[in-house]
Every structure is written in structure tokens, then in C-alpha cells.
Design a protein around this nucleic acid. Structure first.
Length: 170
DNA sequence: CAGGATCTACTTG
DNA sequence: CAAGTAGATCCTG
């Protein structure tokens, strides 16, 4: 499950052709990224003394997000705050971040890369808990035999993101 | 202690 | 070949 709502997070929106994403920043970087939600949720930007520091991060987030949505590899990333996750989850997320655009790995391969070949199911769980989808490309993780597997943001998004990268899993 | 974004091997039709 | 089943195994709340 995602981290509890931290009132100290600065929430900003990102308008894209695919909808309005929501980014949340902690004191150390981007902590969460949310897919566009169905209705029109309250999107009041919370500005504070940390806003000036967040501004360049947000610029980087917007550019990176839009690049990936367009099927291009981002040049720059904002600092990521993964501290909400357990040690295991952070290890998985770091592994996901290494998958190049246009490539995929299976849950089993990720587990092996972590030196814990038997933690396959747990890897799936950690993927589902990824607080920063798209930038941390959990959509590039497929089940064995190239099957699509699951996706918390909805399988449509997973297919869509992969399609932008030139991939069409079963 | 149950359940999951798995995997492999095996059985069936 | 597709689809279903069972067991193994690990992390999380």
C-alpha cells in the first residue's frame, strides 16, 4: 500500500495529452506520482517555503513524464524519495529503474537480479506498491512467457505505455 | 496468518 | 496448443 498521506507533501499537477497527473514532493524529492483519476479531484497546489526548491524538481518531472509518454527516454530525472518503502521494496524499485526504455524484464528476472530468485511473488507485490509509476517503469515488468501480468494503474495503461515503447505483449 | 501484478511442471481436452 | 491445477516460496499488513 502507498504511504500514508503526508500533509507535508507538496502536491502539483501535470497536464498531459493523456490527462492530468498528480505529483507529490517531500523534502528530498518526488515521492509519489498518480495517474489521472476518473473524476476531477481537488487539485489545489500546496505552496510553501519549500516551493522554490520544488520548482526545478517539478520541471524535471514534467519533462521526464512527457518524454516517456511520447516514447522517448528522459534526459533528466528529479530526485526520487523512495524512503516510504521497505528495504526490499526500495531494492526492487531501484532494479526497475535500470530497465531501459523499450526493454522488459519478468518478475522472475528481477528477483534473480536481486539475488533472491525465490522472491518472485514478493517482487510482484513491490511492483504494485511502486509510488512513482511511469518514471519508475514498473510497466516494463511482464510475467513469464512474455505475458502481460498485472498493473495497479489498470492494464490499459500498461499496454498503452508499452505500445509507446514499441512493444506489444500478449 | 492470509493473500498477492509469480513460476514451473504437469494434466486435460 | 490452450487452459486449468497444485505446490513452492517470500514479503506485507
Amino acid at each position: 500500500m502507498p504511504a500514508p498521506v503526508d500533509s507535508n507533501l507538496i502536491r502539483l499537477r501535470i497536464a498531459t495529452r493523456a490527462g492530468v497527473f498528480r505529483a507529490e514532493y517531500s523534502a528530498t524529492g518526488l515521492a509519489q506520482l498518480h495517474f489521472p483519476t476518473a473524476g476531477s479531484p481537488p487539485l489545489r497546489p500546496v505552496l510553501g517555503r519549500r516551493a522554490p526548491r520544488v520548482r526545478p524538481w517539478h520541471t524535471a518531472t514534467k519533462a521526464a513524464l512527457k518524454a516517456i509518454l511520447a516514447g522517448r527516454a528522459p534526459h533528466r530525472f528529479p530526485p526520487l524519495d523512495l524512503s516510504a518503502g521497505s528495504a526490499f521494496q526500495q531494492a526492487v524499485w531501484r532494479a526497475l529503474a535500470k530497465i531501459p526504455l523499450g526493454e522488459t524484464r519478468s518478475y522472475g528476472e528481477i528477483a534473480r537480479a536481486l539475488g533472491k530468485p525465490k522472491s518472485v511473488r514478493a517482487v510482484g507485490g513491490a511492483c504494485g506498491a511502486n509510488p512513482i509509476p511511469v518514471l519508475i517503469p514498473c510497466h516494463r515488468v511482464l510475467a513469464a512467457q512474455g505475458k502481460l501480468g498485472g498493473f495497479s494503474g489498470g492494464l490499459d495503461w500498461k499496454r498503452r505505455l508499452l505500445a509507446r515503447e514499441g512493444l506489444n505483449p500478449r
